[in-house]
């Protein structure tokens, strides 16, 4: 980041290539749309470059970057709601990545679809906390940093998210 802030675009390029997969996966799970996620992935990195001069390496870079992406995602979700109330069906918008031998595994695909839809129905902040924990393996402290909140709030958000998912997945047949 320091090299980038000094005008070295090569350093930014390395950062983008290193982190684009993480940012993109996070945004897909937040937004349920590959196109929007692609768009906001670019925006995240443009903002990262813009903020490079103000970056202080006191915390985790990953948390800092995902905070930018999270703010953009929540802003986009709020804007969506202003336009129309959209029930996120993540599975319908973005099918899961195919794995070797999984193409014919309809049950597996249906389970993935049910999981994505259930995650997509969570309130924004619960979904953000859950995605950061479950799919990006952030610690509670890192999640708190990425969301601009306290560790205690993260505990509550995750607890509520897990309860909601359990109810949703049991009712929807995603788990027995």
């Amino acid at each position: 980041m320091a090299q980038g802030a000094d005008g070295d675009d090569g350093a930014f390029r390395i950062l983008v290539e290193r982190w684009e997969g993480v940012v993109f996966a996070f945004l897909v799970r937040m937004l349920g749309s590959r196109e929007e996620a692609q768009d906001l992935t670019q925006e995240t990195f443009v903002r990262m470059v813009g903020a490079a001069g103000r970056y202080r390496p006191t915390g985790q870079f990953r948390s800092w970057l995902l905070r930018i992406a999270g703010n953009l995602a929540r802003s986009r979700l709020r804007r969506r709601r202003v336009i129309r109330w959209l029930s996120l069906d993540l599975a319908a918008v973005d099918p899961p990545a195919e794995q070797p031998g999984a193409l014919a595994d309809i049950e597996h695909r249906e389970q993935c679809a049910a999981v994505r839809a259930a995650v997509g129905r969570l309130p924004d902040r619960q979904r953000q906390a859950l995605v950061l924990r479950q799919y990006h393996d952030l610690s509670y402290d890192e999640i708190a940093q990425a969301m601009g909140t306290t560790t205690g709030s993260v505990q509550m958000l995750l607890h509520r998210a897990m309860n909601a998912l359990r109810d949703d997945l049991v009712n929807g047949g995603g788990m027995s």
């Binding site: 290539e17 997969g21 996966a25 799970r29 990545a97 999981v115």
Partner: peptide, 15 residues
């Protein structure tokens, strides 16, 4: 159950 979802395929390069 959450871990069964492999996540999205790779994005187009953003750089």
């Amino acid at each position: 159950v959450l871990a069964r979802d492999p996540g999205p395929a790779r994005p187009r390069p953003a750089w």
